[in-house]
Each structure stands twice: as structure tokens, then as C-alpha cells.
Write a protein that binds this DNA or RNA. Structure first.
Lengths: 121, 121
DNA sequence: ACTCGATGATTACAGATGTAGTCGTAGCGA
DNA sequence: TCGCTACGACTACATCTGTAATCATCGAGT
């Protein structure tokens, strides 16, 4: 699967949240703080279409856009990528790392323990 | 901290593994399959220097390069970035996600449980 | 029928990145 | 001393990404 840039991801998030949408609708839902022109959003949609990560169907003379990859699949790809790049492809070192860096609260620890326990059964 | 591209990262890995090194030495240690010219390695080193993630000291008319950021710090940055991008900044959803995706072996689960247990004490 | 606005397509441009060649020069070997 | 070679600096160029303007056109309203 193609990579998705930071700005492009903001568009994907909109579509993952609700689809299908027209370009104008997407533009209306992109976070305000981006301050994007409608043209920018249309460029993003074109590029994402070219990459095959969004699909479009025609509705009159407009397009209706929808994601062509699931958020979960993309998340999986990016997670695997980080794991491969920095942690030899293994999750344990990542968890250890985040723990050392105080990115793990006691609550997180509880949650993950519960999760793992559930996994084992 | 500045971002580091994929190719640049290969150079960083060399320096994280052993430093200081001259440009020629770095080139000699970069993975074969990159098939890089020495010039490519020198460009990488210049750019990484400009980004402030590698430092160099002069040794005669050559430079000796060394990392200016720890691998752990960079890993932390990239981990945080993924977490923020895809998992609302929280680790639990990432672990849950990888578990669902069968990226967690029973052995991984044991290891992480042991790790968390140690953390609590 | 005609104009105007919205729409996708095309073009523009700067910065980052991957990849590598050229240039000026300082030092080493003959 | 003189030329070669290795070094960093600079230049080159394609692709990707962020951001946006322009263009041709189709349809809706007058």
C-alpha cells in the first residue's frame, strides 16, 4: 500500500469517519486549524485516488469519495513499519521503551494486562 | 527534532552502532543491498549534520562523524508520532490492534506480562 | 438562450528526500 | 616539486508532499 502523508491523512480521517462525501463536504469537515483552501482538499483527493487509497463514484458531475483502505489496515501497516524500523519488528521492545519513557500510566498497565489476559483464554 | 528519512536512517544505524567514523567508513558499513555510491553517503552525512542529528569533529582534513541524538530518543519520537497519528496517543489501542492482527505471539504476551509486572513493583 | 458558479483536471511552485556527479584543494607519494 | 587522490562543498535532478491557482466545462437559474 502506498504511504500517506500527514496532510493527506487528515483527509482520510474525514472519510474514515463518514463516507461517501463530495469534495466540498470533505473540505467542510477537515480540521479548521489546517486553514485549507478547497483546492488543496481537491488535490489531496486526487492524489489519494491516484494512490488507490480512496475510491470515487460519479454522482452527476461530482464525485462521491470513500476510503478504499480500512483505517485498521493502514494503522497495521504503519505500526508494522515503526516496529520494523526501530524495534526489530517486535512489540516487546516497544512496550519496554514506552514504559521507560513514562508513556505508560498505571492505568495503561492495568488495561494492557487485562487485554493480554483475555487474549490467553 | 528533525525527521529522518528512510535512507538517512540507514546511515544513522551505522553510527549508532559504532562511532566516530569517517564518511568512507560509514559507506563501508552501510547495508550492501542499498548499492550506494560514496557520494550518496556523503550527502546523507551532510544533511544529517545540517539537521543537527549527527555531529562531526575534524581529524586532519577529514571529518569524524558521530550521532548527536540517541537512538532511544529518536525511537521515542517516532513511537509517539505513530501513537498520536493513529491511536489517539495511547498505547493500549496499539497493543490491542497488534494482538488482533496476530502480531503478538504467546511468547510476546508472556514477555510483556512479565515486563508489566516488573513495572508495577 | 445565456450567464455564473461549482466541479474535476491541469499546472505551479517550494521544500524534503533519494541518489549521485562535479569542483576546488590539501596532503601524500614519487 | 608535481601530480594524483581522497575529502568536503556544491550542484543536479527526479519524485513526493504541502499548498494553491487556473482552466475548461456542465448544469442550474433567469
Amino acid at each position: 500500500m502506498e504511504r500517506i502523508g500527514d496532510a493527506e491523512l487528515a483527509v482520510m480521517e474525514v472519510l474514515w469517519n463518514d463516507a461517501p462525501l463530495t469534495a466540498a463536504e470533505v473540505a467542510g469537515r477537515v480540521p479548521e486549524d489546517r486553514g485549507w483552501s478547497i483546492n488543496t482538499v481537491k488535490t489531496m483527493l486526487s492524489r489519494l485516488s491516484a494512490k488507490g487509497v480512496v475510491a470515487h463514484e460519479e454522482e452527476g458531475r461530482r464525485y462521491l469519495y470513500r476510503p478504499a483502505v480500512a483505517r485498521e489496515d493502514y494503522a497495521a501497516q504503519e505500526s508494522g513499519r515503526l516496529l520494523d524500523r526501530m524495534f526489530g519488528g517486535r512489540l516487546t521492545p516497544l512496550v519496554a521503551h514506552l514504559a521507560e519513557r513514562d508513556r505508560l500510566s498505571p492505568k495503561d498497565i492495568e488495561e494492557i494486562e487485562a487485554l493480554l489476559k483475555a487474549l490467553k483464554s
